[in-house]
Structure formats: C-alpha cells, structure tokens
Design a protein around this nucleic acid. Structure first.
Lengths: 208, 208
DNA sequence: GTAATAAATTACCAAAGAGTCATTAGCAGG
DNA sequence: CCTGCTAATGACTCTTTGGTAATTTATTAC
C-alpha cells in the first residue's frame, strides 16, 4: 500500500499453470470434495473469479491437474528401456531408483493417492489414468522382467504378477506417507527402502 | 400399502449397526465428503433424522464406522502368533492367506482406502487408526520375521523393512481393486497373487 | 496523455446438504 | 381398548460453496 505498485498484474500465460499447481497441492492434501475453490485461488495468488476464467468448472480443473501433472512423467521410462545396454536386473534397479528419487521432491506422485480416493467419483478420468499411466507403467516393468527371464537372469515367473509385486511396495509407501505423515512416526528413507526391496526381490527371504 | 403392516418399526438396538454398515459401504465407495447423510439413511432403511438420533454428527458417524469395523478384526492374528507350533515361514503364509481370504468377502478391508483418502482431514482418527490397526499389524508381521531370522529360517534382513515389503503388495492390490474395479480390466485372483508373492519373497527372483 | 482492451476482482445468486425440531405413530402396560 | 412413552419421521433452517456477471483496473497502442 505504501508503494504505488499495481494491486494485481495481468499474467494470462502464467495463471493456468499456477492455478493447477495450487490445486494439485490442495487436492492431494484434502481430497477433491473437501477442497474449496476459494482456497485454490488464494494459494495461486488470485481470486475465485480468475479460476473460472481459465477452467470451466471444478471438475475440469481436476482433470487438468491430473493430465498436466502426469503426462510429462510417463515417457522417460520408456526411453530408458529402449536405450538400455546392461543387464535387466540393472535396468530394474535404475527404474526403481529413479522412481524413488522422483517421489522425494516431485508433488506429482501424490496423484496416485488422489486417484485412489476419487476414482469412483470420476469414472472417465479414472479410465484415462489407468490406461495412460498405470497400464503403461506396468507394461514397462513387465517387459523388463520378461526380457530378464528370456535372458536367463530371472526365474521363469509370471511377469504380470511379478510386476505387481515389484511396484507395490514403493507405490504404497508413497501413498501412505502422503496420507499419514502427521501420525505415522516410523520414518522411511525411500531410496534405502527401494534398495532393500530390490535386493529382497532378487535374492529372496529364505536362507540357503 | 396393500397390507396393513406398519410403515416403520421401532428397532432401537439394531439401528446403529445398520446405519454403520450403510455408511461403511458409501464412505468406502464415494469418500466421506461426497457421501450424503440422506443416502446413508436411505440405504439403512431409515431417514436422516434417525441417523442423528444415534450419532451426534457426520464426523462422529465416520469415527464410529472406522472403530466398529476395524476393532473386531485385530486380535485374531495376534492369537495365531501366540498359539503357533510349526515353522515361521508357515505362519507367514497362514497370515497372508487369511488376510487375502478376508479381503474377498469382508467390506471392512475397504477401510484402508477410506483412511488413506481422509487421513489428512481427520488427524485424530488417523492417529487412532495408525496406532490401533497399522502399528499392531506391522508388529505382528515383524515379530514373525524376526523369529524366523532367529531360528535360521530367514536371512538376517531388517525386519521392519521386510514387513513393509511383505504387506504392501496385498494391501495395495486391495486398495486398487476398491478404487479402479470399473476400469482396470486386468482381473486379479487375490489368493493366487498372495501365494505368488509369498513364494517370490521366499525364493527371490534371481536364478541360481 | 488518453482511449481501447481484456485480465482480474468483487459482490452476488442458487443449489446442496448438514443439522434441527415439532409432529406422528409404533408398541408395551394396564 | 386406551394411554403414555419414545422411536422415527419429514419439513424446516442455515451455512457453505460452486458458479455468474457487472465492475474495476492494469496494460498497450496511438
């Protein structure tokens, strides 16, 4: 108020991304229904009217959040598979490590929790998510495992089930952390756990 | 209408349980915020006024749902540990199988998904859930693994991390099924997957 | 400087749904 | 059969919040 700078600025290009980021945080934290658009607007540094300038309604904003946040992350893993030279066990570890890494700093992995919570209320978005994100991730891991089996590196297990077994622990631990960070006092080092789980997967629990 | 039976009955003792069951189904399916008390009442065969006869408000109903549904299930596993005679690997399988079984028919396992979605909106309930359900389950599995290590059945791994690795796949698959049953077309036989995961845990993925 | 523009605000509306309470009616005891 | 008790109803209020639109103001071009 003391300086005479403008009360707000026109930033047409930057607004949508800022609103989506604010919405991502709040949706992941409180859920879709419990998040107020007024709060999204405030956190994005605008007012509710501005949100409606860029998104038709709350549901469209939700869809935009999921789409914009997820899509950039999908493809890099597939490139890793295409370009890989070493053993399949190595690639498996690279994929898990990269994933654990991303979980530490990127808010985008919170989408998993969000989709789990809201899938039944947004069937079409759930279908999009399952097809474009989940299926592609599964296929990536399943291919690595299948090639490992073909190369004689892995025992001949069912690659579909093995994929689930490989992915689940990291996935759940992230979802869990997202939900119970306030009360679950057992701290988890994501990367250390990823390594532990990888080695358990490879060697098994039984003594020899 | 044709017969002259009463329009409703007085069933003071039965109502709370019926309302809780209806609420459990709807909360798990649609989430807390998206569930209308009118719908809960209808599904329980009463009207909204009756719900408020037995529960102070929506939040208290939610807490009652979590408490009443979970508590009966906790203790039986602990008894299994106390009474067990065979190997620890056997007990591990018994616990997993029993869990997979229960997931098939009991709605109570849907609580996991519900708590994941709503934990941040109900911190005190989340704390109750983590302490009374999660921690106790973890402790149960960790004890079995520790004893298996002591007995020389298992390699000397970190039992806390191993517990997470053992529990996560089944847990996530259940949560997932709960959320994406409509669009994730890959069918999962819970018991078969439990067996697969158990054997993978025991033997490992690497060929010898 | 000034006028035209459109980005952003603010005050508003309407629907939905949580929560209330006066009334109704099932049921047990006399 | 009647009477009292209270479980259950259903119409009501009030708050919350998604959504709208008239108004304001930053910005740009001349």
């Amino acid at each position: 108020m003391d300086t005479n700078q403008p009360r707000w600025q026109r930033r047409k290009d930057a607004r949508p991304a800022e609103i989506i980021e604010a919405a991502l945080t709040l949706f992941v934290d409180k859920g879709f229904a419990a998040t107020r658009l007024d709060d999204v607007a405030t956190q994005a540094g605008v007012t509710k009217g501005t949100v409606y300038l860029y998104f038709a309604n709350k549901e469209e904003l939700f869809k935009a959040v999921v789409r914009e946040t997820i899509l950039p992350n999908i493809e890099s893993g597939e490139h890793l598979l295409a370009d890989h030279q070493g053993t399949w066990a190595e690639l498996l570890w690279i994929l898990l490590e990269r994933w654990a890494d991303r979980m530490e700093y990127s808010a985008s992995t919170g989408i998993s929790k969000l989709m789990i919570a809201e899938a039944s209320n947004f069937p079409d978005l759930a279908r999009f998510y399952v097809e474009e994100v989940v299926m592609r991730s599964r296929k990536l891991f399943a291919t690595v495992i299948q090639r490992g089996i073909d190369a004689g590196e892995f025992r001949p297990v069912d690659p579909v089930m093995a994929t689930r077994a490989v992915i689940s622990p990291l996935m759940l631990i992230k979802v869990w952390k997202q939900s119970f960070s306030l009360c679950d006092t057992e701290p988890v080092d994501l990367k250390a756990f990823a390594r532990f789980h990888y080695e358990l997967m490879m060697q098994g629990l039984a003594s020899r």
